[in-house]
Amino acid sequence: MTPKMQEIAGELDKARRGLLAAVQGLSQAELDARPKPDSWSVGEVMHHVSKIESGMIGMLSKLALPAIADGLPKDPAPEQSVLSMVEHLPVLDRTQRITAPEFVRPTHGISREELEAGLARTRGELLAAMEQADGYDLSGLSRPHPRFGPLNLYQWLALSARHEQRHTAQIAEAREALAAGAN
């Protein structure tokens, strides 16, 4: 992988390790418990992350792979960092609630095994899609984000890691709220 894609893959890996550490040791009942009636359970957060990652796979498949087949040029700056391209976006700001679009809203009550298998499957597929697109100039391929406007594919990939970090913080908040409610 080029340094650019390695950087993104590293951020995705760091985010996933954080998410899995945040849910470690939780029972199925704890995964399914909602800290408030209008909040997602930890299991729902995990399912949502998997659905977002599936969307990233689809975006790469629909935008990058056909463009590569049509002669997309090589990336002129494969060593350039892309994380700085999304640092200004308030993804990690948990003070503002964001309503997820219907197609990425989670299902409640999925088993831990299914949730973990789904996360492993989507991550494997995403990394495979990233490898197929590696080395090509993804900066000219873009889609609008519902909140942040047009983003190129590099930004979308980097944003995926930040998105997962946001939800890891949500999981920590849910665990605290549930622990406080149990006392």
Rank of each mutant, 00 (worst) to 15 (best):
E173T: 03
E87L: 05
I171H: 09
G124A: 05
Q80F: 03
Q80H: 13
E30R: 09
P76M: 11
T107S: 13
D75V: 00
M5K: 04
D137I: 01
E53C: 06
S139A: 11
R16D: 04
A129N: 05
G140M: 10
G25Q: 09
D137C: 07
T107Y: 10
G71V: 01
P35T: 04
G25D: 09
L12C: 11
Q6G: 01
A15V: 00
P101G: 03
E116Q: 12
S160Y: 10
L63N: 10
P144C: 03
S41L: 06
A179Y: 07
A29K: 05
Q80D: 13
G181I: 00
R162F: 05
V104F: 15
S160K: 10
L89K: 04
M1H: 14
R162Q: 13
A174W: 02
R17M: 02
T107C: 07
R162L: 04
G25E: 07
A129K: 03
G135V: 01
P146H: 08
G10F: 06
Q96V: 02
Q170M: 08
L115N: 05
A177L: 12
A174S: 15
E30T: 02
A133L: 03
P37F: 10
A169E: 12
S84C: 04
G124T: 06
V91P: 01
A117N: 10
R162N: 06
Y136R: 01
T2Q: 12
I68C: 04
V91N: 08
W156Q: 08
M5F: 15
A15F: 02
M56A: 04
L31C: 03
H48L: 02
Q28W: 06
A9K: 14
E102H: 10
L26G: 07
Q80I: 00
P101D: 06
E176M: 07
I98N: 11
W40N: 06
S61M: 03
E102N: 09
G181Q: 08
L20Q: 11
K36Y: 15
A15Y: 02
G135P: 14
T2K: 11
